[in-house]
Design a protein around this nucleic acid. Sequence first.
DNA 1: TATGAATGAGTCTTCATTCAT
DNA 2: AATGAATGAAGACTCATTCAT
Lengths: 194, 194, 194, 194
Amino acid sequence: MRAKLTPRGKDRREQLLRTSAQLFAERGYHPTSVADIVSALGVGKGVFYWYFSSKEELLAELLKAGNHELRKRQQQSIGTEGDSLRRIELGIEATLAWFADHRDHFSIIQFAATDETFAPVLARNEQIGLADTARHLKEAMADGRIADSDPDMLARAIHGVIGRLTRDYIIDRGASVAEVAELAKTFCLRGLTG
Amino acid sequence: MRAKLTPRGKDRREQLLRTSAQLFAERGYHPTSVADIVSALGVGKGVFYWYFSSKEELLAELLKAGNHELRKRQQQSIGTEGDSLRRIELGIEATLAWFADHRDHFSIIQFAATDETFAPVLARNEQIGLADTARHLKEAMADGRIADSDPDMLARAIHGVIGRLTRDYIIDRGASVAEVAELAKTFCLRGLTG
Amino acid sequence: MRAKLTPRGKDRREQLLRTSAQLFAERGYHPTSVADIVSALGVGKGVFYWYFSSKEELLAELLKAGNHELRKRQQQSIGTEGDSLRRIELGIEATLAWFADHRDHFSIIQFAATDETFAPVLARNEQIGLADTARHLKEAMADGRIADSDPDMLARAIHGVIGRLTRDYIIDRGASVAEVAELAKTFCLRGLTG
Amino acid sequence: MRAKLTPRGKDRREQLLRTSAQLFAERGYHPTSVADIVSALGVGKGVFYWYFSSKEELLAELLKAGNHELRKRQQQSIGTEGDSLRRIELGIEATLAWFADHRDHFSIIQFAATDETFAPVLARNEQIGLADTARHLKEAMADGRIADSDPDMLARAIHGVIGRLTRDYIIDRGASVAEVAELAKTFCLRGLTG
DNA sequence: TATGAATGAGTCTTCATTCAT
DNA sequence: AATGAATGAAGACTCATTCAT
């Protein structure tokens, strides 16, 4: 991770990130060699190692950047909404919508989850997302909107629903976000409120 | 997949299956070499290939056998229970309990999901589980116990909850099955009935 | 090579020889494993090593036995023919005819020629065949039927013609022996007599 | 088959080709491992795979390049000779002479003939050589220099003679080209003209 | 910045042969 | 005589990474 990059250098870096993400999603991380990546861009192998110190670092970068974007989208979507449960609904929608636009990212996360190496990055990402959800849940409990219960476990249950429906419908079948979001919101909100 | 195996041969095969599952779960599939597996058993490399035609076949075998066992447990647990929603609850409990006893299997499934090679086996396994759940849901809808909705999508939502809580609590933290099952059942049942 | 074999034992040995020859011809010597051979016969691996001390020995056996048969056929064909040149013609015909009936053997010889291991057996076989031909040639020279020349080199030239036409027409295209023999005899006899 | 090679790269490629040819000829194709090849050059194993995608490809390359050279030599030797039969004689001589200078190549062809994998390349090479010879034969027939007969079969008979004498005298005994060519030419020309 | 070349440990798999029963 | 099981050396090939230019 060089500190200073010329504009051209930034472009190259972006190119590498984009191309890798695509290839990783298509073929998987291990089956995609550094040689594949650079040759897809028509450059020499040195280029890769000029911008990234290793293949692992690149994936970590991808993971971090993706999560950053996802969260931005969630926050934009939630905006200043005052209702805690409504915030959860908006978050669900935003998440599905973002993955619909960034399908590559899903498979990458999926893989990273099976490799100890990426546990730290992934854990941090998840922690952030869970904390967001849990915050809304705690507020809803404090307001008596939902019964008292373990907010962390509930947050994980909700993320489980989102993750599974995203994979099965958004990624695998290219279903419409609205349709899936509808069921996801209903199921989760009822699950919380009873 | 040799047709005839002497008792001794069956034992060896089981040993290989067990040992592999353990190593795959600990270090991951790729990082575990065939050499690691056989040397853990203190036998020659050829032994592996006497019982399995490839490392891939071994994993597929593990996947199939595991799912078979899981389903057996679910069926035993459900027994002749007549109430459709209660059957779902029993299924949730049985699943968490089985994974608590077979943590290795969870990481193996997780990995397999990231490798195209195993998509067919995995798809078949999932399909079976989903169909079981969807059947109960359809019955509940027919009986007016829950509102009409897409039973397949609901089944996947439920499996999403179970999968996530299993991973985060049963596998990662060794939490008690009862405790997790309690929340999972409540969340899912409310999610269905509103 | 066990000294005494029961009648049943002799059969087994023959079966092994026949099956091996066929498989070697179809797939090649190296690509055919001992496992392939015994499993084609539906017997255990021990059987193979009961009758042959090694895969190599089996091939050598095949080579020797085949050559023995070929020569028998040539001799039967030549019988008591008094004319030396006519004897060469009869030999050519008999050789083509024998290979037409034993195509497997041709590929086996072909392979053996590329492996140092079998050089001795092959050399011995060739030597015998060449000596037969050379004897007729010497007689023809002594009788003034053909010009004096190196009988060994001439014999090899004749064998070159036979070998090549056998491969290209008898083996590869299943051409009729008569047709090929016609040209072979004409070409060789003219080559000798001018 | 990398498209771009620096001068240094071209050298390496040539070295690999040369070294492999030598080792294949000495020990045979299968007994020569890629490890043997690279260690004979004192380089790492990856070098081999930088220039050739497989051991097979290397051999195919060798076969093609060799045949190309041989044919060049034949054409140079024949030049603008107008007499069809004389062209055949010149071709015979050139072939023996080329193999005398490239003995390695002979064993390589010999081996390749026993492995289905190389059948296509070999077939193409042979086809070219046979077509050349057959062309001269047809001309000779048209001119009434030799009797009408199957030109393809005759070409194969001639190649049979050349192949055999090359192997037995040029390769195995290092005999003088002139001496062998003399008999080969006489035998074949007489064989044709009667 | 970038390239082509090189490294070499590590992977899966094959197979002739031997052994215990 | 015969079987299923086991051995283990050897082979082709991959690939992240480094280096000389």
